[in-house]
Amino acid sequence: MRIGTILQGKGTRVATVRPDATVTELLTVLSENNIGAVVVSEDGSSIAGIVSERDVVRHLHDRGAEVLGAPVSSIMTAEVRTCPPEANVDDLRQAMTTHRIRHVPVVADGRLAGIVSIGDVVKSSIDILETEKASLVDYLHR
């Protein structure tokens, strides 16, 4: 299965924040969208970084409440792993597990085209296994 197939099911909408948005504004986006990470982007299509709930918690611990007024760019991960829609789900699952990454932006033609979480990837793998199981059970009952 390809990542593009996951995006067809879940959609291609990606929540973004500008690098100069405050961490408090970031928390609003995370909460309102019930998500765990946001792509940092100047224009909604390029990727300057990614920032997650964990980033906020770590920086709150290190810097205290002052971080809430700081720009998102001060806590984001600037080196972002991305994948194309043609990427294989199994390969991405392995990379996400190996590198302990929970969210991967999808890039097509140099533009942000979606985002997948480890939950999306695991769910697609489970769906495939259940389909294969049903086929085997059907075959055995013939």
Score class of each variant (00 low, 15 high):
I6G: 00
L7F: 08
L7T: 11
Q8C: 09
G9S: 13
G11Q: 13
T12P: 01
V14I: 00
A15P: 02
V17R: 06
R18S: 14
P19Y: 06
P19Q: 08
T22Y: 06
V23N: 08
V23P: 06
T24Y: 06
L26S: 02
L27A: 15
T28L: 12
T28A: 14
V29D: 06
V29T: 08
S31Y: 11
E32W: 02
N33R: 14
N33P: 01
N34W: 03
G36P: 09
G36L: 03
A37I: 06
A37S: 15
V38K: 01
V38E: 02
V40K: 13
E42P: 11
S45Q: 11
S45A: 09
S45C: 09
A48R: 15
A48G: 04
G49V: 12
I50Y: 05
V51G: 14
V51I: 12
S52T: 15
S52D: 11
S52R: 15
V56K: 04
L60R: 04
L60H: 03
L60G: 13
H61I: 09
H61W: 12
D62P: 06
R63E: 11
R63G: 02
V67I: 15
V67S: 05
L68K: 07
I75E: 01
I75A: 06
A78L: 08
E79C: 08
C83L: 01
C83A: 09
P85M: 10
P85N: 05
E86K: 08
A87D: 08
D90A: 12
L92C: 12
A95L: 07
M96H: 09
M96W: 06
T97H: 12
T98W: 02
H103A: 05
P105Q: 00
A108M: 01
D109E: 13
L112Q: 12
A113N: 04
G114A: 06
G114T: 08
I115W: 03
D120I: 02
D120M: 04
V121D: 05
V122M: 10
K123A: 14
S124V: 07
S125Y: 05
I126M: 15
I126C: 09
I128F: 13
I128W: 10
L129V: 14
E130N: 15
T131R: 15
A134M: 01
S135P: 03
L136F: 09
D138G: 14
D138V: 05
D138W: 12
L140F: 13
R142W: 06
